[in-house]
Design a protein around this nucleic acid. Sequence first.
DNA 1: ACGGTCGTCAACTGATATCTAAACACTCTC
DNA 2: GAGAGTGTTTAGATATCAGTTGACGACCGT
Lengths: 115, 115
Amino acid sequence: MSGEKFGAFIRARREAKEIGLREMAKMIGVSPTYVSKVERDEFPPPAEDKIRLIAGVIGCDVDELLARAGKVASDLSDIIKRNPVEVAALLRTTKGLSADDLAWLAREAQKTKDK
Amino acid sequence: MSGEKFGAFIRARREAKEIGLREMAKMIGVSPTYVSKVERDEFPPPAEDKIRLIAGVIGCDVDELLARAGKVASDLSDIIKRNPVEVAALLRTTKGLSADDLAWLAREAQKTKDK
DNA sequence: ACGGTCGTCAACTGATATCTAAACACTCTC
DNA sequence: GAGAGTGTTTAGATATCAGTTGACGACCGT
């Protein structure tokens, strides 16, 4: 499942979009040096807000990119913290379910909410 | 929902169990000074592994105590990272659901898995 | 009055996260 | 062959995390 490291991944995407390193740096509000280091995995992935901007620039899903960076979106953490016991139980139960099953479950959740 | 700070909470629990500060410190493998500071919220909550030990000592749910510390169990983070897009969608949908609804949803997930 | 226990204070340490600025080398164009 | 782009190297800055050591004053039983 996408063994590609964070840095290599965003470099490939950036180059595919023909965006220069300095241009990218300006867009996400960091120094070019930093982008260079991160893209060669010499520095760890940046903070969440920067990752969100990068996702916008290279056009990929924020949650996926965050996962690749080894992080979890802070709004998701907040949701867990609101009902730690129940949500933890739910998540542990979903461990091992397929993407399709997860999608089905999300629809069930939506139905419950609408009710 | 339990506005009590992390430190004050564990101090109350510890005292209720008549456990000394030094004893507690020994049990979780840190210095007494550290426990003292944490319990008076002069230091931020400890790392996850220490929090797990504390939960065992004072007898409370690990996920709840982690939430109180503003953290999320790392096994839950791992579950999210395995299927970031689908699990993120599921979690955002569950936002606002009651504890009962969440429990129901977990049972649905279990049924799906058994199938 | 003495040793033991209680919690506390001040001062520090090492590691990790999250970045920056300045100078460098290579290529491509004119 | 000068200038304008690339990306890269060297060398930090700054903050937060996750704690430790050693000394301190208050109290307790004997």
